Amino acid sequence: MQLMVVDDSAMVRERLAGLLCGIDGVQAVLQADCGQQAMELLQQDTAGAVRFIVLDIEMPGESGLQVLQRIKSSRSDICVAMFTQHANSQHRARSLDGGADYFFDKSSDIDRLETLVRQLAAQPH
């Protein structure tokens, strides 16, 4: 399974990539610092290898919610988890209503995110 981390913070991207690439079944962790770069990486993924995206809500340019809509309209097969430090009920509701499959708080849900990726990576393609 390939996955992608989309976050404007290089530290967050690198930390998540390091954590998630060590999971059995994860072949690659792509990184994007904005929505445009994420969409470009998805366009290059002609084999459909990317199955899971961790997406920040607050980014310069397009918000994560706007990127979520673009992802879901072009690749509805991809599972998307919103990952934010702004984990209030309004962001949660807007994310889930917008098509997010999961919603995680950066400050407290890293273990839950890792568990989810382990479960997804163990599933047959």
Rank of each mutant, 00 (worst) to 15 (best):
L30C: 03
L113M: 03
Q37R: 15
A17K: 12
Q90P: 00
M11P: 00
Y102T: 05
A28K: 15
L96E: 06
S107A: 14
R118V: 06
Q2L: 07
R15N: 12
R15D: 10
V29G: 02
C21H: 11
P60R: 04
Q123V: 02
T115Q: 13
I110Y: 01
Q27S: 14
N88P: 03
Q43T: 07
D33F: 12
F83A: 04
S89N: 10
F103A: 01
L113A: 04
G18M: 08
G22W: 10
R75F: 01
L41H: 15
L42I: 04
L55N: 02
R51V: 03
D97L: 11
V67N: 10
A38E: 07
A93G: 00
R70Y: 06
E62R: 13
M1K: 05
A121N: 09
L3F: 02
Q90F: 00
D101H: 15
G64P: 13
H91R: 01
R118N: 07
I71T: 11
V117G: 03
M82G: 05
Q119A: 08
N88Y: 03
V26N: 10
A100F: 04
E14I: 03
R118T: 04
L113K: 03
R51E: 13
M82W: 03
R51S: 14
D24M: 02
G18E: 08
I57L: 11
R70L: 11
S89A: 15
M11F: 14
G64C: 08
L20P: 10
